[in-house]
Write a protein that binds this DNA or RNA. Structure first.
Lengths: 298, 298
DNA sequence: AATGGTACATGCAATTATGCATGTCATGCA
DNA sequence: TGCATGACATGCATAATTGCATGTACCATT
């Protein structure tokens, strides 16, 4: 029996399985077959001489030793990510993948044209778009560039402000007509689960209002508005660019967080992220009026 | 082309090659064939898209990027070593390898019997002895236990003092006879390269003395003394246990650093290191007189 | 009780990685 | 100049790893 040695990729596999809880989940994360995950775990356990996981009916559960091993593997992953970020930041080629994340509803009308232009300008670069309303972890390289709605780029990220924005009230034409015909009619609001009340600014404008439905998904919420189920407060770019919605006077336009493009400082100088920003920033700067209530200076 | 992914074992291979400077050296360190090292380096360079090494006639030389990658891989290795130390410290089995390092000349007469007993007591444990006068890096797991000559265990290590010791002057019987026959005769010293002068205590006892030869290897130096080339200051246990050497009055016995057994704190509690200490400590405690000048309390 | 879905275990075939053998090149020494 | 040594490159055979297919088990739902 030799001195204890574990393949580093087996440690990575242990980490993936601790995180995922199942062979299939870990295999997806690693890009290998789930039977490969099972065999690597067996190999790691043989090398270490201790069980790292209990095999349960509904998946693998890490033992205390398994969690300890995963903690160290996570620290190794931090080093790998730091290295890869530096490599990306130094990468002056315009070929290979560029991972961009943005909220789903911002991609179609605004990122779409930029991606189209970018792809024509730089055919060797493959944009990989990760639509997500969650903030992906740029330190862990879940994306290279992120378009975010926030008030600042974030303490650890480098960013550029794309434009300011407002929210306003939008509804289907039928709902809009009913509101216009009867200024005293009750307003049915469809609200987002994170702020499940009638907006304060809306109550000031039209007090006779109630929350009719609460949604936890913005796409579905927009669909509900299109279907005439009520009034939705949404960013003005979204209301204006969604067919079947019109702005209604249920709430005056409100200030909202800005739109930013951000990246990890290590990645920011890379040629690919820079090339994408070179097209993105002018595109947004040319269309800032779409995002705010008045066509004056923002 | 996918998002950049590098096998972690390939990163480990990059680190080994930066350290070794040649494919063969790296292969030795990793326990794989040198052609495997070459292919893993090619694989890593393909995955990253940048050359990590220049191929020179006398080996591989890391580029700046190669060194950066190796730095991160070294940090990953620190994590691996911390994990493995914890695993070893928690290991309550008495099977598998135990790596012990000690100065060459201490092994034969003193560790040999302990190793013999230990191996009989615990046949499932395989001692792996690394004879070295250099201090191996216990944090990097170059050894599990170290027998060292020093004044303290070291800031980051856990240790037990085995015994005190003195040095004295030893020579061949012929040289000893010449010294005894003529108290005014010049003394030829053979000295160690780190302190290449006649010992001050020797000059006080016999001022007519000179450095005849300087050695950088203790084993060779002992051999030179046996061959009658001069007087050597050495630990008393060594002089006493080496055939063909006798103590000579060229220098009174001098205080010298103690002998310790040390380990990394994470590894110290493990069953194997503890079992070895359980035999080692009594063995030395029973023979402390071998190491000092007088048979009184040390 | 039956069914569908999810998860894991295992044997076999395919793919990938590795080691060996051979050849080439550069360098230092006699 | 010739030889020995050390280093790397490459093709081929072998060994190891991986993915696929099949089977079993468990749980939730109907």
């Amino acid at each position: 029996m030799h001195v204890m040695q574990v393949d580093w990729d087996d440690l990575k596999t242990v980490l993936a399985l601790v995180r995922a809880g199942s062979l299939a989940g870990a295999g997806n994360a690693l890009g290998v077959n789930y039977t490969t995950v099972a065999r690597r775990i067996q190999r790691a356990e043989a090398a270490i001489g201790i069980k790292l996981f209990e095999r349960l009916a509904d998946g693998y559960r890490a033992t205390e030793t398994g969690r300890m091993v995963a903690d160290h593997a996570a620290a190794m992953e931090v080093e790998q990510d730091a290295m890869l970020r530096l490599l990306q930041g130094q990468d002056q080629t315009l070929s290979g993948a560029l991972v961009i994340t943005a909220p789903q509803l911002l991609i179609g009308p605004y990122l779409g044209p930029v991606l189209d232009l970018f792809s024509r300008r730089h055919p060797q670069v493959r944009p990989w778009v990760r639509a997500s309303n969650d903030l992906l972890d740029l330190r862990r390289r879940e994306a290279d560039l992120a378009i975010r709605i926030s008030r600042a780029p974030g303490d650890t990220l480098t960013g550029l402000r794309l434009c300011a924005q407002n929210t306003a009230a939008f509804a289907s034409p039928d709902v809009a007509r009913r509101i216009a015909d009867d200024p005293e009619a009750a307003i049915d609001w469809i609200v987002y689960h994170q702020t499940p009340e009638v907006p304060a600014a809306a109550l000031a404008a039209r007090p006779n209002a109630r929350v009719r439905m609460v949604f936890d998904d913005m796409v579905a919420m927009v669909g509900a508005a299109q279907a005439g189920l009520g009034v939705v407060r949404m960013p003005m770019f979204l209301g204006r660019s969604t067919p079947g919605l019109v702005q209604v006077p249920a709430m005056p336009p409100q200030p909202y967080a800005d739109i930013w493009v951000v990246a990890h400082p290590d990645v920011w100088p890379g040629a690919k992220p820079k090339a994408f920003r070179d097209l993105l920033v002018p595109h947004f700067r040319a269309r800032w009026r779409d995002f705010v209530a008045t066509p004056g200076p923002g």
